[in-house]
């Protein structure tokens, strides 16, 4: 699939935003980090900025944005619609929660905690929906797996947790517990990603033979019936160099997981500095952006079979 930067930006940013918000609420409600009002508000605001920026960027790829408001109507069947509805519902909850935190002087209990935890559920549902937007597509075997929503959720939480570490560290708070959680989430992310990469290596599903119905003998494309590209080739025929894909996977693990984990460990064991966390955040976003880019670039839509691919 063609890796559209608006979609990559959207999923990475909003995922991190939701993750950050989720961890903020959980940390506050369950008290495993020292959250005061400035920390809560800056984390909450950062989360909302990331989420909103992501959502805005996702509308960039709409060809007819004036009808975008209709996207909420098919909640019954469309994960895209569900994502939109959840995203919409999230805002009032998130704002209410932040107001509650502010008014309550960072005491997340009672109603505030309820609102916060509701926002967490909705945020998780949103991220799950985002994952399912891709995960439900039978046309793309690299996506059509439970690993897709799992990855989306785990990476959202992992990126969010690192952001929270960053904020805690700059606020001069103790970030060790959160760093530990982040390490765990990153490790989980690395693991699910590793499983994913291993899993998509196995070619399954339709082939050019089942696509055409000619199952005896080699089938080769003779002519696509058009000289220049079409909507289909532009949208679906993207194919990156194999070497680039391998290199990027190294980037994903090195920058996305290993380096942040190492830096977080360093923060826990040696020197808990916001600057170290910042380096970790940059590394992580570079890595996760690469991950997201690969997520699209490695996805092979079955329509490619009709354009000559032997399998997807």
């Amino acid at each position: 699939m063609h890796p559209a930067f608006s979609v990559i930006g959207f999923t990475v940013a909003s995922g991190a935003g939701y993750g950050l918000f989720i961890l903020l609420v959980l940390a506050e409600v369950y008290g495993f980090a020292d959250i005061d009002v400035p920390v809560a508000l800056s984390a909450g605001l950062l989360a909302l900025v990331l989420i909103s920026g992501g959502l805005l960027s996702s509308t960039l790829h709409l060809a007819n944005p004036k009808q975008a408001w209709r996207a909420f109507f098919r909640f019954k069947t469309s994960w895209l619609s569900r994502e939109g509805v959840f995203a919409l519902v999230f805002y009032p909850l998130a704002l209410l929660y932040l107001i509650g935190v502010y008014v309550n002087d960072a005491q997340a209990n009672g109603l505030v905690a309820f609102v916060g935890l509701s926002a967490v559920v909705i945020a998780l549902a949103t991220v799950f929906s985002t994952g399912m937007i891709y995960g439900c597509l039978k046309t793309i075997r690299q996506w059509n797996t439970a690993l897709t929503p799992t990855n989306y959720i785990v990476l959202a939480l992992a990126t969010g947790s690192v952001l929270l570490v960053l904020i805690l560290a700059f606020a001069g708070k103790d970030s060790k517990t959160m760093a530990g959680i982040a390490i765990a989430l990153l490790a989980l992310g690395a693991m699910t990603k590793a499983i994913y990469y291993f899993w998509i290596r196995t070619v399954i599903g339709p082939t050019i033979n089942t696509a055409t119905g000619f199952t005896q003998g080699k089938v080769r494309l003779l002519d696509t019936g058009h000289t220049a590209g079409t909507f289909l080739t532009r949208e679906f025929s993207y194919q990156a160099q194999h070497s680039l894909l391998t290199q990027l996977r190294i980037v994903v693990f090195a920058l996305g997981f290993v380096l942040p984990i190492a830096l977080l460990a360093f923060m826990i064991l040696a020197w808990s500095s916001g600057w170290v966390a910042l380096v970790g955040v940059f590394a992580m976003f570079a890595g996760i952006t690469a991950e997201r880019w690969l997520f699209f670039a490695e996805a092979r839509h079955v329509v490619n079979l009709y354009h000559g691919a032997q399998h997807t």
Binding site: A63, P65, A68, T139, L232, V303
Partner: peptide
């Protein structure tokens, strides 16, 4: 009159039957 041009349906179509009019 209702389509917002998100391309999503074309992703769901295995047969390349949908084309966006830019």
């Amino acid at each position: 009159d209702k389509c917002m041009g998100c391309n999503y349906c074309s992703w769901a179509c295995p047969y390349g039957a949908r084309e966006l009019d830019r």
